[in-house]
Amino acid sequence: MNMSMNDEYGLPALERLLRCPSPTGYTELAMNLVAEEAARFGYAMERTAKGGGIITIQGTQPGPATLLSAHIDTLGAMVRSVKSGGTLRLTPVGGFMMQSIENEYCLIHTRSGRTYSGTILTSKPSVHVYEDARDFKRDEANYEVRIDEPVRSKEDVAALGISAGDAVSFDPRPVFFPNGFIKSRHLDDKASVAVLLSLLEHFARTGQRPRRTVKLLISNYEEIGHGSSYIPEGVEEMIAVDMGAIGDDLTCTERDVSICAKDSTGPYDWEMTTRLVELAKKNGLSYAVDIYPKYGSDASAALRGGHNIRTALLGPGVHASHGMERTHADALRNTFSLLLAYIK
């Protein structure tokens, strides 16, 4: 069986995903994009009640299905309130450092369907004006959105149709380099979604099928902890495909597939994790096994939801997670090949 990811599909698919806004709570556009990509290869995506997606790849042998999950939702924000001068106060969606979004371009998505451009700034954004601009505390209360419209009051903002509860997405700024590096916001977890879509492309192009039925879960609430509280019936094992962390006390690099043995919720299934390590070795993949004490996944959410399943966690190595992230095409390739080896 050909074990290689088709870069001519997978990398452009990743860019399409990255450019589609999908902060948690505002994911319908991105879910529709995933459904369109799946339909290109003859796969229908079933929608769950809370807006996630399930795609089934029929296996050649009977038996329990394997679930592979990746999440389409990203970090983002919502409008908390409109300030007197016509700027917007934010409330974060997902866990990130507020300073990581300072000076970032953003979009405001209103409930009437209109979209406006803005910039996220502190309320003291210039050293030429504010003596304490450099030392100003970087917390939620001190950030605001400057809307790219002629607004100077709450009334001006209301006339645009912007109000509390509107979604705010951050400009991902994706760049794909000839040397394989990819930098962008939201590689967590759109890099993994692109890998799962590449599996669909692979099976459609080669006519091959997995040994057992595989279900792909595209979750849309992972960043707030309940992306996979529901999983389909007939599943006994689940692999969450999510980014691998990089930094102190970790061996993963931007070119590896990360296999997580334990995160903040505890150890993953011993036998599944061991099998993944053995397959990575057997297939000559660049991989790392690490412990992530500040991390949780869709697999741990499924276990908290009471599902009687075995779980594992793997994914492409991503540097500066929940910030300005970077990975490498090799990490996507290694993740794809390990998943294919597991399900074949």
Score class of each variant (00 low, 15 high):
E104L: 14
T311H: 05
A49V: 14
A30Q: 01
A301E: 12
E236V: 12
R310P: 11
L88W: 06
M3A: 08
D290W: 04
Y221M: 11
G59R: 07
S192C: 14
T27C: 13
S297H: 01
L216Y: 09
T327D: 06
E155M: 10
S192Y: 10
T311N: 03
H109M: 10
M78V: 15
S81P: 05
A194I: 03
H307Y: 05
V318C: 01
P210A: 14
A35F: 01
G76T: 03
T24P: 09
A299W: 05
F177D: 05
A191W: 05
I309N: 03
A302D: 07
A159P: 10
S300W: 06
M3R: 03
R173D: 11
E237L: 06
V93L: 12
A204S: 10
P210Q: 01
L197C: 01
P21E: 13
L160H: 03
E254C: 14
S84L: 15
K50C: 07
G63P: 01
G94S: 09
S4D: 11
K344V: 07
R173I: 08
S184P: 04
Y268P: 10
I218E: 02
E222F: 04
G85H: 15
S112Q: 07
P267I: 01
G161Q: 14
L11A: 03
F136N: 11
D189K: 09
Y26R: 08
T60S: 15
R275K: 13
A65I: 14
Y105Q: 09
T115Q: 15
P232G: 08
A301W: 05
I246R: 07
T56E: 12
V195P: 11
A302G: 09
L199S: 12
M243S: 13
T60H: 07
M1V: 00
R146Y: 11
M45P: 00
P210S: 00
S126P: 02
L160Y: 02
R134P: 05
G227S: 00
E223S: 00
P293F: 10
G52D: 02
S229F: 15
N32C: 14
S100I: 05
N220S: 09
D269F: 07
A261V: 15
K190A: 04
G86M: 04
L17M: 00
A299G: 15
Y295C: 06
V241P: 05
A70D: 08
D248C: 10
A77T: 10
V289N: 02
E236N: 15
Q61C: 07
L313Y: 10
L332E: 03
L75S: 09
A44M: 11
R111N: 10
V289T: 08
Y105R: 15
T115N: 14
M31Y: 04
T74F: 03
E271C: 08
